[in-house]
């Protein structure tokens, strides 16, 4: 039984019957506990037979209350974790703007960190060599680029991480709410860059509670609830979503 399939080239991300179950315990299980007592373990279903097809060039916004499975969905799309069942297909290079500062080493220089971080997010050695000056320029950290990273301020590290990620030329970009990279000046620059990416034919997936941002930038919204898609549609869903929760409060 095969559903009508879009041409492979057009599909950026496709999830079919994806289920992700977490084992929840207040404490991490120890070997002895697992052997002696299996009762203390409960299962939590983060994604329940989840289907989603994202087309190339689509700007998808994901909304939903806390615990709806949004983060799990992103982790599975990025490939940080894998589902217990179902299939995940990703066509193209995927880069996440979440965890921008992860993977930096405090004792290494900015330059060396660019190399390491770029490789970690899937750039090739040659690509980094070619783009490293651009990355440094965009991050705007001046002479500090030769200094070890522990001398950097938090803002500088964020700027460097952001600069590497956006220069890696991803086909699919993962964002979470408001990239808060650095000071006002850089934030403006970063937003500018993100706007540019939105206008290109990139596939963008955003998880956000900042509904105005989604309204302005996305052309498709999915509303997740309890590990499933509750509704799938245009940005009109945002008003419905807002009304739903406003109604609930009253």
């Amino acid at each position: 039984m095969k559903p009508k399939q879009k041409k492979l080239q057009e599909i950026a991300v496709k999830l079919t019957k994806v289920s992700k179950v977490y084992t929840v315990k207040t404490e991490k299980p120890t070997l002895v506990e697992t052997v002696l007592n299996k009762k203390g373990i409960t299962k939590y279903t983060a994604l329940n037979s989840f289907d989603l097809t994202v087309l190339k060039g689509e700007k998808l916004g994901i909304i939903g209350s806390n615990g709806a499975g949004k983060t799990t969905l992103l982790k599975i799309i990025v490939g940080i974790t894998q589902p217990q069942s179902g299939t995940v297909t990703v066509n193209g290079k995927i880069v996440s703007l979440i965890n921008l500062m992860a993977g930096f080493h405090p004792e290494m220089s900015g330059f060396d960190n660019i190399k390491l971080n770029g490789l970690l997010i899937g750039m090739s050695g040659a690509e980094i060599e070619e783009k490293k000056n651009k990355i440094v320029k965009f991050a705007d950290i001046g002479e500090f680029i030769y200094a070890p990273l522990h001398t950097y301020s938090t803002g500088m590290k964020l700027r460097l991480g952001f600069s590497i990620a956006v220069h890696s030329d991803p086909d699919i970009l993962i964002l979470d709410e408001g990239v808060s990279a650095g000071d006002e000046k850089f934030r403006a620059k970063a937003n500018n860059k993100i706007q540019k990416l939105f206008k290109q034919n990139k596939t963008i997936i955003v998880v956000s509670h900042w509904l105005n941002f989604l309204k302005e930038n996305c052309n498709r919204i999915i509303w997740m609830e309890k590990g499933k898609i509750k509704k799938d549609g245009s940005t009109k869903l945002l008003d419905e979503y807002l009304a739903f929760y406003a109604g609930k409060k009253k």
Binding site: V78, G79, I80, V95, S96, N99, A102, G103, L119, L120, I121, G122
Partner: peptide, 9 residues
């Protein structure tokens, strides 16, 4: 763990 949560290398 921070590295593992960054990407799927």
């Amino acid at each position: 763990r921070a590295l593992l949560q960054k990407s799927k290398f």
